[in-house]
Simulated assay, not measured.
Amino acid sequence: MSKTYLITGVSSGFGYEMTKQLLAKGETVVGTVRNDKKVQSLIEEYPNTFFRRFLDVTDTKAINELVADIYQHVDKVDVLINNAGYGLFGAAEELSAEEVNHIIATNLTGSIEMIRSILPHMRKQGGGRIIQMSSYGGQVAFAGNSMYHATKWGIEGFIEAVAQEVVPFNIGMTIVEPGGARTEFRYGSAQVAQLMPEYNKNPAHEFLTMLDQKNGLAPGDPEKMAAKIIESVAIEPAPLRMVLGSIALKSTIDTLEKRLENFKSQTKLAASTDFIE
């Protein structure tokens, strides 16, 4: 039986690749865009199963109106994939207040409000699946990526908590943590702050090497990653996390092991602050 998917940010990257694969499988996709030029071919090829909607995920009112309107036309949305987002690079001092506020509104608040808007509907329909696109940058931090990490660490904490709240309603939630992939995220949509010479030769500017394709392309295959995300919908219970990419997994494990060692070394310190009864 075919499913209906609501996917944000389908004009490029993982959103576009997932939409393309789902439509080829006969699924129905409601995909949000800010500009529909890149999805014209999908509109023409799948007029009965692909429905593009314009949405700026920083607009909470628009999110609520979109979800309400979708449920006027479909019985249920089986899967929500929060995919819209972008990367912002630069040292914390180099970022403007506008850049800070916008990436939070897009990557963090936008995802939160989309989930909050659809939860009442999924609860009433008896269940559903929510997939939140994050990054291994939701567990591992690099200089020059502070605000991107802030949004990803934030949304992961939100998902972990909400996932526990909605289990009784048969709603599963999955955080997807891809490593570097050959998408427009890195080679097109990435935004760079107004760089300061004081940070030249500083770890904060090492991202410039990563963004330059002359230094080699990212190892992740977007087509394979999209396929694994789609396959996860059938897994019961929903996996809380999926790390995609061998480098991403190794980096995550190494980071968590070091973090755990640090916590364990604080056993006496932690106990020393308890009341002694």
Score class of each variant (00 low, 15 high):
R116Y: 10
P168R: 00
E93D: 10
E160K: 09
S146K: 00
G144Y: 01
Y148W: 13
G127P: 01
M114C: 05
A181P: 09
T106I: 15
T151P: 07
R186C: 08
K124W: 05
E113G: 00
R182W: 08
S117F: 05
M173Q: 00
G154Y: 13
L95H: 09
S134N: 14
R123M: 10
G172Q: 02
E98T: 10
G127A: 06
V140D: 02
L108S: 08
G180R: 05
I130W: 03
E93M: 03
M122K: 06
T109I: 15
I159L: 14
V176N: 08
N107L: 12
G172H: 01
G188N: 10
A105K: 15
W153D: 03
G180E: 13
P178K: 13
A141G: 03
I115W: 04
A150V: 09
E184R: 13
L119I: 11
M147E: 06
E98V: 11
G144F: 05
H102C: 13
N145S: 12
R116A: 06
G144T: 04
G87R: 07
E93C: 05
N107M: 12
S111V: 12
T174D: 12
M196Q: 09
A163P: 00
E177A: 14
Q194S: 10
W153I: 06
V176Q: 07
L88N: 11
Y136D: 07
E94H: 08
V166G: 01
G138W: 06
Q164K: 13
A143G: 03
Y148L: 09
F185Y: 14
E177M: 10
A150I: 09
G126N: 06
V166P: 07
E113L: 02
E165W: 06
V140C: 01
L88V: 11
F89T: 02
Y199E: 05
L195Y: 00
A97Y: 12
V140N: 02
N145V: 05
F142W: 06
A150S: 15
A150P: 08
A97H: 14
G154K: 04
E165I: 02
S189M: 10
G87A: 14
I115E: 05
I112A: 07
P197W: 00
